[in-house]
């Protein structure tokens, strides 16, 4: 709610509460701003924070690698490729200024197509290889390929398109309509349900793959569920908000440090809550309360998040994983 009350147009906290609980406001436009801009933005931040943090946790446990995040399978690179092709490639090949075609919705569609193409490629490969670590490398390789294509595109494109693309990569939790929000929240819900189903096998993975298998975990099936769930979470979030960095990598670490456990029955709900709180907080800071400008959220997540993680690690002197 504090998040909702801050923004370019300053609306007092009391008035925000009034608007949210249905009382008449003296200023009609305030009510409009709150219901059609600020509330969706806050909900997006909550959903995106929770989803990214959860997919980060899934990847770190699956790969037993503290550096893994929601995007190690190349999901965000796929999304950036989709967005890049739409924004830069389109004007490049048709030679037209197609700004009328490029808006939030078409970018969301292009980036979700991109991320799901990459995801399906990775799943296809995952079913053929046995080694999970090889999958990690393959995800990284996909990232390199897409990054290369994006740089080629940016080299040839015009300044305006390049700026638009870079602006997309900053990430933003604003600008979603209620319909988009419903789509996003049902995807997140599906992702969370799948992860809950995987909690038992995730705990088995803590011992390593061979032990997990000896405990009766069906490795192929559980790996598939975990990858699909990550794909749905990270893919749909990236499609609507752009690639929001850091949350997925850092929140699972913060949560492990604070709760001092590796049990996913505690970690899964905890990262959901922490993830949404932290992204909400970052969004609040990005607003620069009292100012008219809004900072890119990607910069804020890292500026706030990185020192917190460093501080926690230094205080405990030991990384918990």
């Amino acid at each position: 709610m504090v998040n909702i009350s801050f923004g370019s147009v300053s609306i007092s906290f009391l008035d925000t509460l009034k608007a949210l609980f249905g009382s008449e406001l003296t200023n009609q436009s305030w009510e409009y701003i709150i219901w059609n801009y600020r509330v969706p933005k806050a909900i997006t931040a909550i959903l995106a924070g929770a989803g990214l943090a959860l997919s980060g946790l899934l990847m770190q446990t699956l790969f037993r690698n503290p550096l893994a995040g929601p995007f190690v399978l190349g999901i965000s690179s796929g999304a950036s490729l989709g967005a890049a092709i739409l924004i830069m490639g389109f004007s490049l090949f048709t030679g037209l200024l197609t700004s009328s075609l490029i808006n939030d919705v078409s970018i969301a569609i292009a980036s979700s197509i991109g991320s799901f193409v990459v995801l399906f490629l990775v799943i296809g490969i995952a079913s053929r290889i046995k080694d999970t670590m090889a999958l990690l490398i393959i995800g990284l390789m996909f990232g390199s390929i897409t990054a290369a294509i994006v740089s080629v595109l940016s080299y040839f494109t015009n300044a305006e398109s390049l700026q638009q693309y870079v602006y997309w990569t900053f990430g933003s939790v604003g600008g979603l309509t209620w319909t988009q929000l419903i789509i996003l929240s049902s995807m997140i819900l599906l992702g969370i349900l799948l992860s809950v189903l995987a909690i038992k096998s995730l705990n088995g993975y803590l011992l390593g793959e061979n032990y997990a298998r000896s405990l009766g975990v069906n490795l192929k099936k559980s790996r598939f569920i975990i990858i699909i769930s990550t794909g749905i979470l990270a893919g749909s979030i990236t499609a609507f908000t752009g690639p929001i960095a850091f949350i997925g990598l850092a929140v699972p670490h913060l949560t492990r440090q604070i709760f001092n456990t590796t049990n996913h029955k505690i970690l899964v709900p905890a990262v959901l809550i922490f993830g949404s709180c932290i992204l909400l907080l970052c969004d609040l800071v990005a607003q620069l309360p009292g100012q008219a400008t809004v900072l890119p959220i990607n910069a804020i997540t890292s500026i706030i998040g990185a020192p917190v993680v460093i501080w926690l690690l230094m205080r405990k002197r030991k990384m918990i994983f």
């Binding site: 037993r64 803590l206 011992l207 390593g208 032990y211 590796t262 994983f321």
Partner: peptide, 9 residues
């Protein structure tokens, strides 16, 4: 097994 467990925490 001889392999160490993935998470010792």
């Amino acid at each position: 097994l001889t392999e160490p467990v993935a998470s010792k925490n």
